[in-house]
Design a protein around this nucleic acid. Structure first.
Lengths: 218, 218, 218, 218
DNA sequence: GATGAATGAGCCTTCATTCAT
DNA sequence: AATGAATGAAGGCTCATTCAT
């Protein structure tokens, strides 16, 4: 009766909720989590501040949702690029997949530094910190899969993947995202090349000639 | 007389300023930059909030000064451990010095996570971000010196030290300070060993047997 | 047909309205008027917040209706216990009826403190305050009837029943409902006995031996 | 140096704090605790809202202070009227002192109903509720002292003073403060007379001829 | 120079009420 | 008649900054 809801309505709810998260995503990408106040997010979504509370119980939940969306997109892109979790991935040598991972991650990070920094480093809500853990674990698992594939295929000798994988994730985050040294900015290409090679060494692969993009680089 | 007076005054100014920065350092080490409000710093220094503005034009400047002090101490300790900038450093192989750097840095970071996290990651004032750049450059230069010493002594083949050095710094920061994966926490010793080895590889050194503490570890 | 429809509609209206008030009653009994927000009441009644405004012009009116219902039930129970307004009441001595009133009131209040407190004391809407007046008048009239019956039967000498009756009501409310003095809590039985006796004196009856429950205690 | 504080300053602090509490007192007396918001109190004290937090840690503390002041004045007045805690009190018969208590309490309550109601009944902050307990205990102790003096002097036979005393306090509060029955308002004098007599009976004193004011009635 | 009280903008959150559907 | 999303005015609280003394 009236409203014929649960279809149109539910869709609307999702759209609104999505709009709020999208607005938050934009703000975080531009200015970091510190700028993502309830009022600002609501305003950018074209909605009043009170309305936010129809969709999220509190700021922590909104922040977490924003983080989830932003980080999820990043992680999915990287995973797609290396065939994470697929059978098909084994058709490509592990070393080449690590190379792809570094390049996809790096290219995106260099393009959107504020966002990358917010996702990886910015101190924020408890909600964000909780999600961050999940997100980092996701990256670490992705790297770990590649490394253990490498071990299995014989191209890599390594123990303590539990320490090596996060170290690689860390090196990536740090090297790509942190504002690099002032002075003549290196061209992105050179940065990518060097760090891809460094990660190969870090992982323990033998020297590697980058193959040109053989996979989807997102 | 006038001069004298000015001198005394100047000394007093310095002492006060120093007391404020020291108080801030303590607070940041205990609770991060988020807790270092003007009122709290002034209070811990035994001074009124208004007085802070006699010594620093605004909060940004105070935060920057606090950062400088805290980060400076860390950097100096690491540099002392590897003989940065001294003639004497050349008596020790580069690879061994890199090992020392990793271990000193890591040991301090693991001991004082809040401070380390604040210095490396915590979102903060513009002032802090600016200083952070300087600080990271300091580390990078320290690593770079070791690497180029290695090249000179023939133990290392590497170009693009400008990219390699920050990658090493980044890997260190990330791997030591971020909350590691949930699950069984590795013992600090194992962490240090593994990361030291990984950094050797990252740098491009051949495999290395850690030598027992041959240098001052601060 | 038209009439029928109207009747059905009217019945429906009443049912809805009643459901809202009942929901409010529950909430007030559990958590007081402060918890009886429009949204909460509507939700518990299985109705949307907007719908409330179809039945009540504003929150004040809803609160008043809730109060009316809750207080009405209490008052009716007490009145039934003392035969208020019936011919039959005169078969029981006034003093014994006052005893019954005190015990019924007290027992219910001790059992449901939150509700009792909400009805008697909780600061609330203008609407509630207005109804509270009616409610208290109801109690006062009940006591007054007993007292004047007592005068008529010769067991009591009193003028100014208009002042005596509310004083008795007040003593009841206060003594039973307010958190009693800290320290060893008296057992409910003792409290009931003592206050029943005190009310006898307050009313002006001679000493009275409580008779065992001679009336319906609801 | 500068400010020569701790004398002038401390005095000023006290004055301001006092001004805030006084402003709160006024508001509560006029409109109850519900109206005593931080902003409103600050405004009436001629101060900004933020300033309140210089003097009170949070709203609970401010409310408690307001309550303390208002209730303290009332209690002190009543106690002075009955010689509470003094040796001199024993010169006056207990029954007469109870009479004085009722009249002083009642007269003040009838003069300032909103305040009395706020102090005795209004649901409010945790801070207020906590203080209210103390305040009620104060009244109860005052009544209890009179009653036990009466027992000692032989004019009264009573056990369970622990229940009788609060019942008297309750009766007073209720009968004087609650809006009495609508209709022709009784003259205050008659109300006082009747309730004073009722309280004598409630306490268990024999009939008593009111003596004309023999004590300070505040 | 030092003080520290005062300020006021800004943050998160709640809730009675309205209105297009 | 019913819906329930949206509103916007409060409310409590924090903190960098100013200024009379």
């Amino acid at each position: 009766m009236a409203y014929r809801s649960t279809e149109r309505t539910e869709q609307h709810r999702l759209a609104r909720s999505e709009a709020l998260v999208a607005a938050g995503h934009e703000i975080v990408a531009e200015q970091g989590f510190g700028a993502a106040t309830i009022a600002r997010v609501a305003d950018r979504a074209g909605v009043s501040a009170g309305t936010v509370y129809t969709y999220f119980p509190d700021k922590t939940a909104l922040s977490a949702a924003i983080f989830d969306r932003a980080a999820g997109i990043e992680l999915d892109t990287v995973r797609a690029a290396v065939g994470y979790g697929t059978e098909a991935r084994l058709a490509t040598p592990a070393q080449q997949r690590l190379d792809a991972l570094v390049r996809v991650f790096g290219a995106r990070a260099l393009r959107g530094r504020t966002l990358a920094s917010a996702l990886l480093f910015e101190a924020a809500d408890v909600g964000v910190e909780r999600e961050r853990l999940v997100f980092r674990r996701g990256y670490t698992e992705t790297v770990a899969e590649i490394l253990s594939d490498g071990v299995r295929e014989g191209s890599l000798v390594a123990d303590r993947l539990d320490l090596l994988a996060p170290a690689i994730v860390g090196a990536l985050g740090e090297a790509f995202i942190r504002p690099l040294m002032p002075g003549p900015a290196s061209e992105p290409e050179a940065v990518l090349d060097t760090l891809a090679a460094a990660c190969q060494r870090l992982a323990g692969f033998a020297t590697f000639e980058p193959p040109g993009a053989g996979m989807n680089l997102g």
